[in-house]
């Protein structure tokens, strides 16, 4: 009966990092390419999840629970962020009937 860390260690650490990094970069690309506020926000969530995945991987790899605890914190905070973020988006939608971030460029120079 292998313990979970041992199973996890069968795959080199680099692969976890690569995967998470790839996810993270996809998130970044999403942020860069999308103009819809909600989708941009989802891309950011994707970045956070990449982080979560990596944290969990490290945590398991080193048999150190603190990483996973951190994941919970991130989830909680992300939830708070979602609440605020969506509220902001709704507020904007009410005002301009659009959530296209490209439209919001009155503040500049």
């Amino acid at each position: 009966m292998q313990s979970i860390p041992e199973i996890i260690r069968t795959i080199p650490l680099t692969n976890y990092i690569m995967l998470s990094s790839a996810l993270f970069c996809i998130g970044i690309l999403g942020v860069l390419t999308r103009r819809n506020a909600i989708i941009v926000f989802m891309a950011i969530e994707l970045m956070l999840n990449a982080v979560n995945l990596l944290l969990a991987a490290f945590s398991s790899y080193y048999s150190d629970p603190s990483g996973q605890i951190f994941v919970f914190f991130i989830m909680a905070v992300a939830a708070a962020e979602v609440a605020v973020g969506l509220a902001i988006i709704v507020m904007i939608y009410r005002n301009i009937q659009s959530i296209d971030i490209g439209v919001l460029n009155k503040l500049k120079n």
């Binding site: 860069l32 103009r35 971030i101 490209g102 919001l104 460029n105 500049k108």
Partner: peptide, 14 residues
């Protein structure tokens, strides 16, 4: 320089 401040979030993040 201030022209770099385009007001566009996408640009900022980029």
């Amino acid at each position: 320089i201030r022209k770099a401040q385009t007001g566009n979030v996408g640009y900022y993040i980029f």
